[in-house]
C-alpha cells in the first residue's frame, strides 16, 4: 500500500470525525423527539460566527470561543425549543419541516444582514501547525476537532446510558405519557435535550471555524452531509453517527483520490441508498 493512500485514509478519518461532530446534535433531537431540524446546518454556522466574534473582539482562540459557542447555542436551543419546537412537535411532520426550514432562513439571513456576505476566516495561528508523524501530515486544528468529536460522542453516549438524566430523557423519548406518569416532566427533558444538542453543534461550529471559511451560507453545505451521516448511523444513535461519519469521510477521501473528486459524492450517495435498501434502520438504529 502506497504511502499516499495512508495519508488519504488519515485525512478521511479526520474529515469523518468532523462530520460526526456536527451530526451528533442532529441525531440526538431526531432520535429523542422525532424532529428533523432543517436549521441544523445554520446552528453550526452560528457556532462559527461566535468563534469569529470571540477572536475579533477578545483576540481569543477556541479555548474560550468553543465553550462560549456551546453556551450561546445551548441557550438558543432552549429558546427555540420553548418558542417553536414544543408546539410544532404536536403538529404533523410537515409542520416541523416548515418551521425549522423557516428558522434556517431566518438565522442564515439575520447573520447575513449583520455580518455581510464576505468570507471570513480565523487566522492560522489560532490553532496552528501541522504534526508530522513518520511522513503522515496532520493539521493540528483538524486533530483537535477529531479528538473533541470522540470525547463528545463518548460523553453523550455515557450521559444517555449511565446517568439518571439520560434514562429520564430516554424514557421521554420512548413514551412521554408513561414518563409523565412516573413524575418526569417531558417538557424539561426535551428542553435539556435541545440544549445539549444545540450546544454540541455550536461547539462543532467553533472548532470547524479554525480550519474552514466562515460565511452565512456555509450551513447549507454541511446540513446535507449531516442528514446522510445521521440516517446512515441510525436516527438517535450517537455512536452510529460517529461510525457513519468516519465511514463517509474515508469513502469520500478514497474515492476522491482514486476515482476523482467530482465523483466522490456520487459514490457516497449511491452506497448510502444501496445500504438503506438492505438495512433501512441504519447502522446502529433500532428497527
Amino acid at each position: 500500500m502506497s504511502f499516499v493512500i495512508v495519508q488519504v485514509i488519515v485525512g478521511g478519518l479526520l474529515l469523518g470525525a468532523v462530520y460526526a461532530l456536527f451530526s451528533s446534535g442532529l441525531t440526538l433531537v431526531w432520535g429523542m423527539m422525532n424532529v428533523v431540524n432543517f436549521a441544523h446546518g445554520d446552528f453550526v454556522m452560528l457556532g462559527m460566527y461566535v468563534a469569529y466574534l470571540v477572536y475579533s473582539l477578545l483576540g481569543a482562540g477556541p479555548l474560550i470561543g468553543a465553550p462560549l459557542a456551546m453556551l450561546v447555542l445551548a441557550t438558543l436551543g432552549v429558546v427555540v425549543y420553548f418558542s417553536l419546537i414544543r408546539d410544532i412537535m404536536k403538529g404533523p411532520m410537515l409542520a416541523q419541516i416548515l418551521g425549522t426550514f423557516g428558522l434556517a432562513l431566518l438565522l442564515r439571513y439575520s447573520v447575513f444582514w449583520w455580518f455581510g456576505a464576505n468570507f471570513l476566516t480565523l487566522p492560522e495561528n489560532v490553532v496552528g501547525g501541522t504534526l508530522d508523524l513518520f511522513g503522515i501530515r496532520i493539521q493540528a486544528a483538524r486533530l483537535l476537532a477529531g479528538i473533541v468529536a470522540l470525547v463528545v460522542t463518548l460523553g453523550l453516549h455515557l450521559l444517555l446510558t449511565r446517568t439518571s438524566l439520560g434514562s429520564k430523557m430516554l424514557a421521554v423519548a420512548e413514551d412521554s405519557t408513561a414518563a409523565q406518569l412516573m413524575g418526569i416532566r417531558p417538557d424539561s427533558m426535551q428542553a435539556v435535550a435541545w440544549a445539549i444538542a444545540a450546544g454540541a453543534t455550536g461547539l462543532a461550529g467553533a472548532l470547524i471555524a479554525t480550519f474552514f471559511y466562515i460565511v452565512p451560507t456555509v450551513g447549507e453545505t454541511l446540513a446535507i452531509v449531516a442528514f446522510v451521516t445521521v440516517s446512515l448511523g441510525g436516527f438517535g444513535s450517537v455512536p452510529g453517527a460517529l461510525v457513519a461519519g468516519l465511514l463517509i469521510g474515508v469513502i469520500e477521501s478514497l474515492s476522491g483520490y482514486l476515482i476523482g473528486a467530482i465523483y466522490q459524492d456520487i459514490v457516497v450517495y449511491s452506497l448510502f441508498l444501496g445500504f438503506l435498501w438492505f438495512r433501512p434502520q441504519g447502522l446502529m438504529g433500532k428497527s
Binding site: 499516499v4 488519504v8 485525512g11 469520500e252 477521501s253 478514497l254 483520490y257 473528486a261 459524492d265
Partner: peptide, 30 residues
C-alpha cells in the same frame, strides 16, 4: 476537477503533490 463548495480538498492536493506538475492553473471560487 472537484465539486464546488467542497468540505475537503486533501485528495486533490495529494494528487498534485504526487504528479508534481510545473505549473498549476487554479480555476476556483472564493
Amino acid at each position: 476537477a472537484y465539486p464546488s463548495n467542497a468540505t475537503d480538498l486533501q485528495s486533490q492536493v495529494l494528487q498534485l503533490k504526487e504528479k508534481k506538475p510545473d505549473v498549476v492553473i487554479m480555476i476556483s471560487y472564493t
